[in-house]
């Protein structure tokens, strides 16, 4: 495509359990039934980046998510933030990262054409950071991960600054491509009441999971190879002694305590 053509952007997002609200039962297991969920924190950065690129370059942003009907809550938030339309891949099946990314890729192919897929660096519940690069592999597209800045080039490519551990790498790839963004790339906007109301009029298309299954002659869909056998609360018991007097009093009490702990 030429640099001037409107961009077709797809943002992937996950409706994830809100870990800060997650309760523990008597046996130390999480109470997932009825647990509160919301858009995974960093996915809001992905939505923001998609919408702000659209605002600069023109085009459309489609929010894409996979899950049960609950996912609509996060999709609506993305629409209120400025996505134009959404695709919900209905699935109540347990899928691992490989299977999830496979069906997302199939959905992207059905929604084609597209120029740029944006994911976040990792989901708030597992923080695997796998779905983005896997999506790129299924679609056989270039992948740029941990993007902290994007810049559209005139020649139909995107230049990105990647926040790696030891360095910042500046790289470039032609559209179509897949990127994952880090949280410092932007500050997600808060939609106005009007935008929230308007979002409910935007179209949400449904792709049932079965409709994305491979046809005869196509390679089989991956099975979920990874299983969660058990989830238990991490224990941490601390003394929780609070000093609430004047700063001077608290300071000397703290020093005394630390001395008797043998850490000073």
């Amino acid at each position: 495509m030429s640099g001037k053509a409107p961009l077709r952007i797809i943002v992937c997002l996950k409706h994830a359990v809100d870990e800060s609200e997650l309760r523990v039962d008597a046996s130390g297991h999480p109470i997932l039934q009825g647990a509160q969920a919301r858009m995974s924190a960093f996915d809001r950065n992905a939505v923001e980046e998609g919408v702000s690129i659209k605002e600069k370059a023109g085009g459309t942003v489609t929010a894409l998510s996979l899950g049960t009907e609950d996912v609509r809550k996060s999709i609506k938030e993305a629409l209120a933030m400025g996505c134009d339309r959404a695709i919900l891949v209905n699935s109540s099946k347990y899928l691992d990262a490989l299977a999830t990314s496979y069906y997302l890729a199939r959905a992207v192919q059905r929604a084609a054409p597209y120029d740029l897929m944006i994911c976040s660096e990792g989901a708030s519940d597992t923080y695997d950071g796998l779905v983005g690069p896997m999506l790129a592999q299924w679609l056989d597209l270039p992948f740029m991960g941990y993007v902290r800045r994007t810049e559209l080039r005139g020649d139909g490519s995107l230049q990105c600054e990647l926040a790696m551990e030891e360095s910042v790498e500046v790289v470039e790839a032609r559209f179509p491509s897949v990127i994952s963004v880090v949280s410092e790339i932007n500050s997600p906007r808060y939609p106005t009441l009007l935008q929230i109301m308007q979002a409910s009029k935007k179209p949400i298309e449904e792709f049932p999971l079965d409709s994305l299954a491979p046809g005869p002659g196509e390679a089989a869909a991956p099975e979920a190879a990874v299983r969660v056998l058990d989830t238990t609360a991490q224990s941490m018991s601390r003394k929780k002694i609070l000093f609430e007097g004047s700063p001077e009093e608290s300071a000397s009490k703290l020093l005394e305590a630390l001395k008797s702990e043998g850490v000073l």
Binding site: A97, Y127, L130, A136, W138, F143, P222
Partner: peptide
């Protein structure tokens, strides 16, 4: 950060699960 991307590509190429 790079290791996760390498893992993702290997997994898709070989259709294997990834434990992260």
């Amino acid at each position: 950060r790079l290791g996760r991307q390498v893992a993702a590509r290997i997994a898709v190429k070989t259709s294997q699960g990834v434990l992260s």
